[in-house]
Write a protein that binds this DNA or RNA. Structure first.
Lengths: 202, 202
DNA sequence: TCCGCTATGTTGACAGCAGCAACTTGCGTT
DNA sequence: AACGCAAGTTGCTGCTGTCAACATAGCGGA
């Protein structure tokens, strides 16, 4: 009995995405093969092709999931006052990158070819536009564009530098990634246009 | 005669790196194969292995060259007054990313495994420390760490967002990448991190 | 001058991968 | 009960990275 291997898996697509992230985290981009993912799920080497037309299509789905999760996480980080909210969102962005570095890299690696995967393009665009909108709300209408771009560049760059481990010890000054993010984002919020919000993140 | 195919190529290593960048730009990470590079150079499929122990080693060399070029470009962007210099360096950083997006991505993709390629790690570390130092010179000694990190994150993030083409039209407001970089970096230099004491930018 | 060493390149082989084709299974419909 | 389609399987092809054995050339010492 045990029904251990029903002929139809039933949830393969979702699991492919999930195990795909697992493999990607363990072995990196070069080590992520459809066959390895199939092996881990106990299905044949060609089963994935019934759900994804190509390896790249799986990558696109993984990135898409990443964007969805990023949006959800940012929404959860919402706060009462908008200034605190923007800071919390920035931290959430960085935290997401630090917790799921492989997916974060994939999302912005440019390897997926968004033009070939409209679903991914749409999801990414929505996700990023939302971020931009929220940032814009805080910085006000006049010159909102550049302030928004600034804040976004800032957070995005910080996330990349942190997960690349490329911050020299001198700058790190013994702080953890999270502490660093908190400090630097705080400095940004303080310096970048709007004066208030004394240490909004408790 | 023509000496078209001397048995010994004479300059293979350098050309592998150069053509490697070419292929990477054309076909992306997945499309970059040692065999393709060898083909373009008219050598056998195994010739590259006399210069690089693995595909990854070639990638490392390409990234290393990228860091070297980035440093050179930044040095060339030096200016008289330090404040103008820092801005010029930031622009140079972004310009490098926009001109050679494939290499820039490779340099920060984390796919190369710096721990396995000490030469790359050294070059990257030197390159980035130099950037940090120069930024630090401008922002002064007190709180230099966070201001430096801020500026660097900022430029790094802006570069990534620009070359990902992920900036919504609303924020772009019709400006070219270069114009955008100029505007945003200018805003940063004006607003960021000077501790609120003075306004060094005339 | 000649000999042989080493760096550089070549041919041949193997295993792993993406993707195509043809076959099988079994669930949902009628 | 019969059937059709979605989901899974086996088998194949061509490409890739990498290993091993062999070939060539230019160089330094005898």
């Amino acid at each position: 009995m045990t029904t251990s291997r029903p002929y139809h898996h039933g949830d393969l697509r979702r699991q492919l995405v999930s195990v795909g992230e697992e493999v990607l985290a363990e072995r990196g981009m070069a080590g992520l093969s459809l066959r390895e993912v199939a092996r881990r799920l106990g299905v044949s080497h060609n089963a994935p092709f019934k759900h994804f037309a190509s390896r790249e299509a799986l990558l696109a789905a993984m990135a898409e999931q990443g964007f969805a999760d990023l949006v959800a996480r940012q929404a959860a980080a919402e706060a009462d006052e908008p200034e605190a909210g923007i800071l919390a969102r920035g931290l959430a962005y960085v935290t997401f990158a630090l917790e799921r570095p492989a997916i974060f890299r994939l999302m912005f690696s440019g390897e997926v070819g968004a033009e070939r995967h409209p679903d991914l393009a749409a999801r990414a665009s929505v996700s990023l536009s939302e971020i931009a909108t929220r940032i814009g709300e805080v910085f006000g209408p006049e010159n909102a564009e550049d302030a928004t771009l600034s804040a976004w560049s800032f957070v995005h760059g910080l996330a990349h530098l942190l997960l690349d481990g490329q911050i020299p010890p001198v700058l790190r000054a013994g702080r953890s990634d999270q502490e660093l993010a908190r400090a630097v984002l705080g400095a940004m919020a303080h310096g970048l246009g709007y004066g208030g919000a004394e240490d909004p993140v408790a």
